[in-house]
């Protein structure tokens, strides 16, 4: 009888040890934490040239209702190699990812970027409209 109690005790302890440290942190396919936040917007936008200096003539206008980013760039900006930078609300992420230079030269078909909220349920697609300063 005593032997059985010892055995049961050992099994219990092992089971507890095996499950005790497992906490559930959900992550998405990029290894980023999925949270409960539902906010989904762009808070700021920056555009750098090939020399890593800004090409904006003034602050970009982000419209979170119309889902547009309007930015005017200097005359003589090389639109083929620009480096966009999005500031997003906490826990949100951007799709497609920006990995380096982006070609914005096709002004007729503006680039689109999708913001995905912290809970990964809300998606909003922003259109980046670029206008070049004219003399």
């Amino acid at each position: 009888m005593l032997k059985n109690i010892r055995l049961i005790g050992a099994v219990f302890l092992t089971a507890i040890a095996m499950i005790a440290c497992k906490e559930d942190f959900p992550v998405d396919e990029d290894g980023l934490l999925i949270t409960s936040r539902t906010q989904c917007y762009v808070s700021n936008f920056e555009l750098l040239g090939s020399d890593f200096q800004t090409v904006r003539t003034k602050n970009a206008v982000v419209d979170t209702v119309a889902l547009t980013v309007d930015v005017e760039v200097f005359y003589g900006t090389d639109l083929k190699s620009l480096r966009p930078q999005f500031s997003l609300v906490t826990d949100a992420k951007l799709e497609p990812k920006i990995t380096g230079k982006v070609d914005f030269s096709d002004l007729e078909n503006p680039k689109k970027y999708t913001v995905i909220s912290g809970n990964r349920q809300v998606k909003k697609t922003y259109t980046v409209k670029i206008t070049v300063q004219k003399p």
Binding site: F74, Y75, G76, Q133, K134, P135
Partner: peptide, 19 residues
């Protein structure tokens, strides 16, 4: 020095007449 834009000092290839 062109009004409304920043042109200033430039290095341009002869092939590019626009600039």
């Amino acid at each position: 020095s062109i009004p409304n834009i920043t042109f200033n000092h430039a290095l341009v290839a002869p092939s590019n007449k626009e600039y």
